[in-house]
Design a protein around this nucleic acid. Sequence first.
DNA 1: ATGGGTGCAAAGTGTTTGCAAGTAT
DNA 2: ATACTTGCAAACACTTTGCACCCAT
Lengths: 129, 129
Amino acid sequence: MKQQRNTKQRQMILDAVQTRLDHPTADQIYLDVRTIDKRISRGTVYRNLNVLTGQGKISHVKLPQTDRFEADAKLHYHLICTKCGAVCDAPLPYQKELDEMASAHTDYQILRHRTFFEGICPACQKKKD
Amino acid sequence: MKQQRNTKQRQMILDAVQTRLDHPTADQIYLDVRTIDKRISRGTVYRNLNVLTGQGKISHVKLPQTDRFEADAKLHYHLICTKCGAVCDAPLPYQKELDEMASAHTDYQILRHRTFFEGICPACQKKKD
DNA sequence: ATGGGTGCAAAGTGTTTGCAAGTAT
DNA sequence: ATACTTGCAAACACTTTGCACCCAT
């Protein structure tokens, strides 16, 4: 694997993800970092989010619409509001038995699974439209 | 809800999805339908795939990269090869208990969940690179 | 010094949309 | 006749990339 350096941009991007408690999109990270260094480019943010994900320092949350990133690298599920798009962690443990079941019944070499729940968040329920 | 018509384009698109045994992308459907009617447009395909999904006649498989569609409208999981992108149905039943668990532990009104397994398909395993 | 990294802008993907003309009901 | 649909092309939203310069090691 190629040697990877520690640039100040990469560090700022990691800090930005770790600072946020939610699930920011790449563009939100870009905007956050830009408040500190207004010369950073979107390309650099995208490239580094991928590098940091590869290093296991952050995780890439693959959802419909727009992908998101978060500091918590442990496997877990997400909840997404189909009205407003809000994303939060799901209060359920990762079901590793599902990977075992899938492995047992297919010839795929199963690595993991990703699950996201679709529903209406409390705020949108109140709007009752 | 607005009245929906039965156009020949819509029917051809539904037929195309039902004819395929795999999980075609919108563009694959477009190409398939084009072999029959070379005047159809991508916009029409996208619009109708959404309409048909809304009618419950087909299902929209939301995966990273490119969304796919399939004739089977029952809830089920998918397997995706991280090397070649191949998609197939997972041999596991939909775990409705997960929806109940999520409902019990959050204030979201849970509608469903989507799960996809990531792994290496048999063909790519043989390539052993 | 050397090769990974950055900024910039252009190019890609995949999908949606405005509009005038067409057509199912 | 009415209003849902279509074809076309332009517009979008998000992400990747080529390139010349820069900088961490």
